[in-house]
Structures are given as structure tokens and as C-alpha cells.
Nucleic acid binder design. Structure first.
Lengths: 188, 188
DNA sequence: GTCTATACCCAGATAGAC
DNA sequence: GTCTATCTGGGTATAGAC
């Protein structure tokens, strides 16, 4: 079972660097220390490998955000924690940035996955934002859904600029600027 | 010269759909109504075609934003106009979203182009934001550079979500929400 | 489980006819 | 200018030895 994980790790790396379509099974296998038929013994096809990679990530990050019964303070804390975690897991961020753009194409094998994922993430973040709105912490005239969509977009976009120039972009500071514009109650 | 333009248009389409690396010269040529050696007569190599596509776009959008001697009102108007224009030129938006993620890889032939482009866009937008800051229109404690980085990130991220579900995302409305959080003077 | 060898296909690019 | 034909390299996947 250790082998499978090494392959998945290698796949995350290469999918992030060149995208799914341009990534070669030989390259992925080499990084995992085997040859490409060896890889195909474990996964069977390239698409199966992709599915495993996406599922792996979902499991790993399952419990992150469940908005139920959260205080406004906890919501804000969770937001900053998420941004900080992103700056740490470079490889995973790189892969998601690359794949989410590539899978825009309806024919892409991960298209459905990302369509559902964005809908889901938007739902979760809307619930989070609603906590802030209900608490009266937000700027008047702001709806939870629009704010949620904006914050997701912000994080996605920041990740791209950050990948081009990690020195120039401080994602947490950028997020903080955004939050302070939207949240009126002092965020500590 | 009409032929060249048809090829470039087809290339924009396919680069947007599947990315540069996964796009085939035969597909591009077919969409332009010729065969792939015919295409190579005009451009010589795939990379040359990519360069032509990027340059074509730069020329077309050259005069968009020059911040010199702009009033705060004009800055805001330009921002909204840009967002509206983006919703119109679907193909171009799709290509830039796809390529800017793909070219994150330092080995990508467009990597240098996008590195420079982001630095340049960030510089221009910072100048625009500075006009608002100097006019006292912005929330206190806000720096022009951070705001500029955020607004670029926002637009990039919105484009991705919009490509997945055009019905669900109104880019101008999203931008408006962001602007109203940052700009305190009534934006009409 | 992992390998070598190979089948088969499609990529970018070139040669040379028209 | 655009074509057909072809070269070479790399892609995914399979067969079969060890």
C-alpha cells in the first residue's frame, strides 16, 4: 500500500506541473521509482489514476469546514487557517490550480468532478458567510452567496499569481485585506 | 493575410479548450479550413503559433488602461467596463484562464510571457488604485498594491467559476460587490 | 509485483508534388 | 500556398517472463 501512495504523490506533482493531459505515465512512474507497466498494475489506466488522486485529496481534506453551529469568530479563524494551510501545501495547490483550469473543457475527464466541487464549495462557504451576516458583522447590502463566490474566486486567483511569484504574494495578507473590507466588526 | 487570422482564431479556440500542450496542429488547421502542413507554412512551428496568438491579443488590447491623469470616477468606470468586456469575449477569456494556469510551469513556452504580464498588469492596476486612494475614496488602511493584486485575483478566479457555470455567475455583479466594500464614496 | 518487449496511435515537423 | 506522404518520437496500454 505504500507504493500506491508514492504513485499518487508523484501524480499530484506532475499533474500540477504540466496538467493531466500533458503528464506522461512514464514520468509519473519514474518519480515513484517504477516503470509505467508497474504503475498500470496498480491503477489500470491513466483516468483511474486521476480519479484516485482526486479522491485521495477529498478524503484528506474531508473534515475541514462544516459550518454547523459556528460562531462568527470561529468562521473568521477557519478562513485564515485555510489560507495558511494553502501556502504550506504547495504541490496540492499547484495541482488544483492547474486542473481546475484544464477541466473547464466539458470533455475533460475531471470536468464533472470540478463542476460538483465548485457547487459544493460555494454552498459551504455561503453557509459560513451567512453566519457572519446573521451576526451583523458584515457590511450592509452584502449577501452571503455573492460574498462566498467572491472569496473562492479570490483564493483561486491569488494562488495563480502566487505560483508565478511566491515572493511577491502574501496570500494571508491579501485575504486579510479582503476580510477587513467586508467584515466591519474588528477581526482581532 | 486573412488566412493567418483564421488560424490564430482557431488556435485561440483550441488553446482555450484543451490548453497549449494538448492542442493538436491538425485540429487547429482543420478548424481554419486547411491541413497541418498548410498551417506550418504560415507559422513554422507550434511555439511560433503560440507567440503569434499572444502577440495578437496584446496588440488588440493595447490601449485599454493607461492610468495617467485619470479621475476616480473614470477609474471605476474603466473597471466595470473591463469586466463587461470579459463576459463578451468568451473565447479569449477561456484561453487566458487555461494558459495562465498551464504556464505556471517554468518549462512552459509561455511562462516568461505570463510572468511579465502579471507583473505589468499588477503595476497598471496599482496605479489605478492609487488614484482612488489619493482621492480619499477608499477604506482607511488600504494600500493600492494589495488592492490591485486582490482585484486581479478576483477577476481571474471569477472567470474560472464562470466557465464552469455561466448561468450562476454574474461577473459584473460580483465585481460590484467587491468594489462597494473597498470604495466608500458612492459609486453612482 | 515488477519487469522487458511490443503494439498501436497520434504528435510535430519535413520533403516534394502541384 | 496548399497538398500527400512520410519521418521520428512519444503517448497509453497489453503480453508475457521472472
Amino acid at each position: 500500500m505504500r507504493r500506491r501512495d508514492r504513485i499518487i504523490e508523484a501524480a499530484i506533482e506532475l499533474f500540477g506541473e504540466v496538467g493531466y493531459r500533458a503528464a506522461g505515465l512514464r514520468d509519473i512512474a519514474a518519480r515513484a521509482g517504477i516503470t509505467h507497466p508497474g504503475l498500470l498494475y496498480h491503477f489500470g489506466s491513466k483516468e483511474e489514476l486521476l480519479a484516485a488522486v482526486l479522491q485521495h485529496r477529498d478524503e484528506q481534506q474531508e473534515s475541514m469546514i462544516s459550518a454547523v453551529h459556528m460562531t462568527p469568530e470561529a468562521v473568521l479563524a477557519a478562513l485564515y487557517a485555510l489560507a495558511e494551510q494553502n501556502t504550506a501545501e504547495v504541490k496540492l495547490v499547484e495541482m488544483f490550480a492547474t486542473l481546475s483550469a484544464e477541466a473547464t473543457d466539458p470533455n475533460h475527464p475531471a470536468h464533472e468532478y470540478f463542476t460538483c466541487r465548485y457547487a459544493d464549495v460555494r454552498r459551504r462557504f455561503t453557509a459560513l458567510a451567512q453566519v457572519l451576516v446573521d451576526a451583523g458583522w458584515t457590511r450592509p447590502g452584502l449577501t452571503a452567496e455573492i460574498a462566498a463566490t467572491n472569496i473562492i474566486a479570490l483564493m483561486d486567483g491569488l494562488q495563480i499569481q502566487w505560483l508565478y511569484d511566491p515572493e511577491a504574494i502574501d496570500m494571508v495578507a491579501q485575504l486579510d485585506c479582503f476580510v477587513r473590507s467586508v467584515v466591519l466588526v474588528s477581526p482581532t
